[in-house]
Design a protein around this nucleic acid. Structure first.
Lengths: 236, 236
DNA sequence: CAGTGGTCTAGACCACCGA
DNA sequence: CGGTGGTCTAGACCACTGG
């Protein structure tokens, strides 16, 4: 065990998590109070407080002022899906990232798009279509519409050097987003640009981001099923 | 403003979040040090520490010992992705959920499985294969292996009444999980049981759950691409 | 080296809950 | 009322970073 090197509050957290994980303390059972922990571990009350406060934030226990701390009823496990720049993602794997630019244009918003981006019908919107390559192999077809109000100089970006995601993150602080993930067959154009057969399943992520109160961008990200998977970890 | 009633550390957090949200402090910019905050707000260093520590946990800033605190590049946003019982999920949509049980058996662990579940090669493991239907239409093919140590009476469950997920959540408190999501074609058996063509893309979720320190279960969840999508929302 | 964050202490006052 | 958590302070020592 690396228990000796752990900070005191981490040791207390580990102790409590272990009791909960082993089933020794069941949901609803009381957890030792801050004062009890101080005495038991020979630590100050603040240290015990930090341990319990963090466990509460992580969903392991619930605390009620005046009443006490108890083991939480359900373990809600929420993931930490992160909106990442694909360039960083590839670079982190130690691979080469390159971008092929297919379309950079200003267009007029149709009904559906106008609604998604919160602009008027026929108002100008920015449109880019790119293919991202990892070590020369296409891994993502990115079809994106951007609200000019959120990133006025979007079209001036050199997309071979800065990805749309990084440009948007720099210029339009992200406050909200929604996504959906599905499995689809690629369109003929997508298949051609990704260099795959039209029968190969693709992982498609549709994402809509909001900056402040203003919709910033909607994107359709198509990944060949054999070359890309989303992975993640839940904790707490 | 309710600023007067807020604890000091919350006021400091609000101040910093406001600067970041308004774009006044850009990603990578330095955030005032704990000492600077103490002076500026007339608070103790510990209070400033708590504000910055929580902002770091929430993904607004990054901290490096010895170097300082800076505005984070990305907003880490926790999603609503939760490990849910498919029965609840379907019921929530106001639909009928039914289960077809294909396999309920005890088997011997092969090399790979033994490693995933943390048991010895050839040790007994529980195996179930189910098909979940929403209003009579197959939406998920669930192939699951369970560690007997985590849920000894798993095989006695009536899976038409309680789903594996709900049984496991009841009996083996969940502490950790990892998953991957990909797009694949179904195997012949999967296609047959789901009632789809073998060329129809499927959304496949591989999930491994851990209860305490013990791997509890590994599952392969296959969903027809045309009938199922994962959706979620981010919020700051 | 000076400045930073990481941790910890031994007190303190308050608001709240339950008996 | 005593016990609980919620917050805050004014110090302290340490490990790490940068110039």
């Amino acid at each position: 065990m690396a228990a000796r090197d752990m900070p005191a509050y981490e040791q207390v957290k580990a102790y409590i998590k272990q009791r909960i994980g082993s089933g020794e303390w069941r949901p609803g059972d009381p957890v030792p109070s801050e004062a009890a922990l101080s005495a038991q571990f020979a630590i100050s009350r603040m240290t015990g407080n930090r341990a319990l406060r963090e466990l509460a934030a992580e969903g392991f226990v619930t605390r009620v002022q005046g009443s006490g701390t108890r083991v939480a009823q359900l373990h809600r496990i929420s993931s930490q899906l992160v909106i990442r720049d694909i360039h960083e993602e590839v670079a982190e794997r130690g691979h080469q990232h390159a971008t092929r630019v297919l379309t950079v244009a200003q267009e007029k918003a149709g009904t559906e798009l106008a609604h998604s981006l919160g602009v008027k019908l026929g108002a100008p919107v920015f449109h880019t279509v790119l293919v991202h390559l990892e070590n020369g192999v296409p891994i993502q077809y990115e079809d994106r519409y951007v609200n000019p109000a959120a990133a006025p100089d979007y079209l001036q970006t050199d997309f071979t050097k800065a990805s749309p995601t990084s440009h948007l993150l720099q210029n339009a602080p992200l406050t909200e987003a929604s996504y959906s993930i599905e499995a689809c067959l690629p369109t003929p154009v997508e298949a051609k640009e990704l260099g795959i057969r039209r029968t190969e399943p693709c992982l498609v992520v549709m994402r809509r981001t909001v900056s402040g109160t203003r919709p910033a961008s909607v994107a359709r990200l198509v990944h060949p099923g054999t070359r890309y998977s989303l992975a993640g970890q839940f904790q707490a």
